[in-house]
């Protein structure tokens, strides 16, 4: 697939995502799309560190939760504007990333050891956020005051009581813009020296070092970028749901969501996390609507199916859905543009 076809495909996809909600008037379906894009961004954050850098984190909730809590607490406790708080939230997430990265990479932790240390930090933050009641409000979580004044909708970054367009589509286009930024950043990275060096470290760290790459510095850059993007998801989450509590913020749920989409979609590709997220959410909804209904509306059927899909993808599609698409494209064009 050459550059031009690829670019055309991207434009087509992004334009579709930009206009599709305008044809949907059911809040449920717009919500569905919002969550799809949300997980696509969350997945891209993880993908930068794991897919491109080969450092498999199992605790990305750490960065998501840090971003979310900073965003919520700065507003509730210090009365900061959400538009100011978000810079602290994103840099706070990146800072926690730098801290965990420094500890792990300084001592050369790789593979499952790195996965375990990220999980351990996420769990530690989960416990801390529950027990430090004077700062985090403990297990009951932090609730943002609801703004009911349409005039203040943009200033408070709350669109529930805004005008007709914003209340319906405000959060969809918020996450869409975040997606554009995160994916643009990833695409830029892929074509830069930093990206090439990051992939070299993933492929073979010793060889990379021998070729003049400061592997520690490159990995630090990757974890900060990855954590920053993930923290942005935390900011979005808090503004949309106006609530955060320890389990949602630092529990394993978000860590798993973050890695599920890129693994199914295709590790180390820009498109992978988005494709994976569309697939997961699409299949999830379909399962709930068909098999779930047939079994009497029992929850959890989609989760069972996800388990099966994950096993199948790992067994037969090591390069994920992106790899599958490329193979199909190659066959359709007879390998001419491959």
């Amino acid at each position: 697939m050459n550059e031009r076809t690829r670019l055309f495909g991207w434009i087509l996809l992004l334009v579709t995502l930009a206009v599709v909600p305008l044809f949907l008037h059911s809040a449920r379906w717009i919500d569905f799309l919002e969550m799809t894009l949300f997980v696509a961004v969350l997945g891209q954050g993880w993908n930068i560190l794991a897919g491109y850098g080969g450092q498999y984190s199992f605790g990305h909730a750490l960065f998501f939760g840090t971003g979310a809590y900073i965003q919520a607490l700065l507003q509730v406790k210090f009365g900061l504007s959400p538009w100011v708080a978000m810079w602290f939230a994103v840099s706070g997430g990146a800072l926690v990333g730098a801290f965990v990265g420094y500890l792990s990479f300084r001592y050369g932790l790789r593979g499952s050891y790195f996965a375990l240390i990220t999980l351990a930090f996420a769990e530690a933050f989960l416990v801390l956020s529950r027990s430090l009641k004077s700062i985090t409000e403990g297990g009951q979580g932090v609730q943002l005051p609801l703004n009911q004044d349409p005039e203040q909708a943009i200033a408070t970054f709350q669109f529930n009581f805004a005008g007709p367009f914003l209340s319906e589509y405000g959060f969809y286009y918020t996450i869409f813009i975040i997606l554009l930024l995160a994916y643009g950043l990833t695409a830029w990275m892929e074509r830069s020296r930093f990206g090439a060096q990051l992939v070299a470290v993933r492929e073979n760290e010793d060889a990379a070092k021998a070729l003049g790459i400061n592997a520690f510095k490159v990995k630090m850059g990757a974890i900060c970028l990855s954590a920053g993007i993930t923290a942005t998801c935390g900011v979005y989450y808090v503004q949309k749901f106006l609530f955060i509590e320890p389990g949602i913020a630092f529990g394993p749920g978000k860590s798993v969501e973050a890695l599920f989409a890129p693994i199914i979609g295709g590790l180390g590709t820009v498109l992978g996390p988005l494709l994976g997220s569309l697939f997961i959410h699409g299949v999830g909804e379909m399962t709930k609507a068909t098999i779930g209904q047939a079994l009497g509306g029992r929850p959890g059927v989609d989760l069972i199916l996800f388990g099966i899909i994950l096993i199948l993808v790992l067994a037969f599609l090591p390069r994920g859905l992106v790899g599958l698409l490329e193979a199909i494209w190659k066959r359709l064009t007879g390998g001419r543009n491959a």
């Binding site: 992939v199 070299a200 492929e203 073979n204 010793d206 060889a207 021998a210």
Partner: peptide, 8 residues
């Protein structure tokens, strides 16, 4: 022992 970046 050669160390290529195999997937590149």
């Amino acid at each position: 022992v050669v160390q290529p970046f195999a997937s590149l």
